[in-house]
Design a protein around this nucleic acid. Structure first.
Lengths: 250, 250
DNA sequence: CAGTGGTCTAGACCACACT
DNA sequence: GTGTGGTCTAGACCACTGT
C-alpha cells in the first residue's frame, strides 16, 4: 500500500549555474511552499534519497537544506517516520527588529519625532553597557515614536560616536541604519519590565501619571563583541506589547 | 611568521566506542572549554582540516560540530580568516523556562501556593488558544509563586485534561512536569505587556491597586502542533523582569 | 599569493519506528 | 522486515580574506 504521501511536492528544481548554493535554493523553495500553503501542515516530504535523486543532488546537500528548515522550526524529522511540515503555524521566531519596522509591518503608520540628537559624555550605566570608559563621548538619541499620530513609545539610545548618520532617522528605524552602517550584528541582550509613569513621561506619552508603562532595555553587540547600541525604551502599555515565538532547542 | 594562535586548544579527544555521536562529543568539549574560559573570547581555533586530523575525524564531522556551536552563537566563522570564539559573553539565548527554574537558578527560594486545581469547561479565549471546541473540559491551575516567601507572580494555566499529574506542583515548575509527561515541546507563542493591578490582584500580590504589573500570555505547542498549555500570568513589576538574549540569524 | 571556510559528491553503516 | 533519518568518511573544487 502506498503511504498517504511522498510525491505531492511542488515543482522543485535547482539551477546549477546560479551563484546561490544548491542547499540554499532548495531550502528557499521549500520554505516558500510551506509559507504559501503548497505544503500544508503535516505534509510528509518524500525521503531524502528520493528527494536528492529527483533534484540531481547528493543526500548531504539535501540534508543541509532540511537541517536549516528544521532549525527554523518549519520541519520536524523523526527517524523511521520521515520529514513533515510542522503542524502549528510558524511565525518569525523573535528577531532583532526595530519598533519602526514592527509598526510598519502591522499596517500602522509609524512616525518619529527626534527630540534629542547630540554627543554627550557617557555616564556610568551607559559606559558600562557599551563597554567604554566613563566620560567617553557617545551619540545620544531620544525619539518619540507614534502610530497614526498617537504616541506609542519614547526611545532613548546611546551609540558609539560616529557609528551612524542620523540623517534619515525621522523616516526609518535605527536598526535599519545600523545594519546599513556596516557592523554585522550578532546578539542582543534584552530586559523587559514595567513601571509607573513619571509626570513628564506621562505628559509626553499622553498618559496619566502613574499609568503602567512597559520598559525595555537592550544592548546590541556585533560579531567582534563590541557593543553597537544601548537602548532604554518606554512603551504605552495599552498600545504596545511584545509578541514573539520561541523554539525549543533540543 | 606564525599567527597568534592555532594550537592552544584544550586536550580534545573523542571516544569512538561511546554511543554519543562524534560531532556531538566535539561540540560539547568545545562548548565547555568556552564556558569555563579555557578558550577565551576571540581565540582562533585551528582550521578544520587540522582539527579533523588531530582528532582522527573527517572534515564534515568537525564541521557539523562547529556548525551547531555557530548556531548557538558561541563561535563566529569567517572565510579566509578562521573560526573564533565570539567576543561578547554568551548567555542562554532565551529558552522555554518555567519561572520556578528561573528563580531557583537565580538563587531565590521559589515557593508555590496552589490556589485552584480543577477541571472546568473551556471558555472562548481558552478554547481558541488550545484549539479545542468551546466547553471542552480542561485542566485549570492557578498558583501564587513566591520568592523568599514574598509573592512574585500569579500564574494561571489551562491544559488539556489528563496531560499532567499535578501531584508535585507545589515543589516544582509546570514545565518540568510537561517535559516529563511526554509531549516533545516545539514552540511557544508569547506576548508580554503591562497593565494596572485590579483590587483582588493587588491584594493577592501585596501591591496597591493600580500598581503596574507585567503580563505574559503563552501558548505552548508540541511537535505535532497540538497546544499543550495556555498560560496567562501576572508579575509584580518591581520584583520581576524578563531577561533574555537573542541571536541575529543571517 | 597562501590559507581559510563554503560547497558538493558518492558512497557506507547504524538506530529507530512502524507493520 | 522494511523504510526512515542519523552518522561518518575521503576526497574535490570554489570563493573569500589578508599579505
Amino acid at each position: 500500500m502506498a503511504p498517504p504521501s511522498g510525491s505531492p511536492l511542488p515543482p522543485l528544481s535547482v539551477d546549477r549555474a546560479s551563484p546561490v548554493p544548491l542547499h540554499s535554493q532548495l531550502a528557499r523553495q521549500l520554505e516558500r511552499a510551506v509559507a504559501d500553503g503548497t505544503l500544508p501542515p503535516g505534509t510528509l516530504l518524500g525521503n531524502e534519497i528520493d528527494l536528492a535523486g529527483r533534484l540531481g543532488l547528493s543526500r548531504p546537500t539535501v540534508r543541509q537544506a532540511l537541517r536549516t528548515l528544521v532549525d527554523k522550526g518549519l520541519l520536524v524529522r523523526r527517524r523511521g517516520v520521515g520529514t513533515q511540515v510542522v503542524h502549528s503555524r510558524v511565525r518569525r521566531p523573535l528577531e532583532l527588529s526595530s519598533l519602526y519596522d514592527d509598526l510598519e509591518a502591522a499596517g500602522h503608520r509609524p512616525g518619529t519625532r527626534l527630540l534629542v540628537d547630540r554627543l554627550e559624555p557617557a555616564t556610568g550605566p551607559v559606559a558600562a553597557a557599551l563597554g567604554l570608559p566613563e566620560g567617553t563621548e557617545v551619540h545620544y538619541l531620544e525619539r518619540l515614536r507614534t502610530a497614526h499620530g498617537a504616541p506609542v513609545a519614547r526611545l532613548r539610545n546611546h551609540l558609539p560616536a560616529g557609528l551612524v548618520d542620523t540623517a534619515g532617522l525621522e523616516s526609518t528605524g535605527l536598526y535599519r541604519l545600523l545594519r546599513a552602517a556596516g557592523p554585522a550584528l550578532h546578539t542582543a541582550r534584552q530586559s523587559i519590565g514595567a513601571r509607573a509613569a513619571a509626570p513628564e513621561e506621562a505628559a509626553l506619552l499622553d498618559e496619566e501619571p502613574g499609568a503602567p508603562l512597559l520598559t525595555m532595555e537592550r544592548t546590541t553587540f556585533d560579531t567582534t563583541g563590541r557593543a553597537v547600541e544601548f537602548g532604554s525604551h518606554l512603551y504605552r502599555a495599552g498600545r504596545y506589547s511584545f509578541e514573539f515565538q520561541l523554539m525549543v532547542r533540543p
